[in-house]
């Protein structure tokens, strides 16, 4: 058979397997005012995937309308301090259309002195 008349067709399949993170928002999610999903949609998602683990804080901000915060983080650092830092950093790289996910590592350094 002439190959130019009957070309062969092949499909190549690449599969990447990775673990689905539950929930997919990590520690903090900044929800832009014009992002494809809003705070109520996020609430529905976390209620279904990780009930009671996140807090949704509605804010009055130039780009963001809500911050979704993992409750366990606020045991390590006051919520207001963390929000101020994360919004400050978030607005440098985000816009109203952004849904920004953040992972936060907090290291607490303690030095105690004891009487010998």
């Amino acid at each position: 058979m002439d190959k130019s008349i009957h070309p062969s067709r092949k499909a190549e399949i690449n599969i990447q397997l990775s673990e689905f993170e539950v929930p997919p928002i990590q520690d903090i999610l900044l929800v832009g005012k014009k992002a494809p999903i809003g705070p109520e949609a996020v609430r529905q998602m976390i209620d279904a995937l990780s009930p009671e683990q996140y807090e949704i804080i509605l804010i009055d901000h130039i780009f963001f309308e809500a911050v979704v915060l993992k409750k366990s983080i606020t045991k390590l650092i006051p919520k207001e301090k963390l929000l101020s830092i994360i919004l400050d950093e978030g607005e440098r790289i985000a816009s109203e259309n952004t849904l920004l996910r953040a992972q936060v590592n907090i290291t607490i350094q303690v030095t105690r002195g004891v009487d010998l």
């Binding site: 014009k34 992002a35 494809p36 999903i37 809003g38 705070p39 109520e40 949609a41 529905q44 259309n97």
Partner: peptide
């Protein structure tokens, strides 16, 4: 006009 079509009505 101001919201992404994927959004929930509750968010718009």
């Amino acid at each position: 006009k101001e919201n992404h079509p994927n959004r929930l009505v509750a968010d718009a």
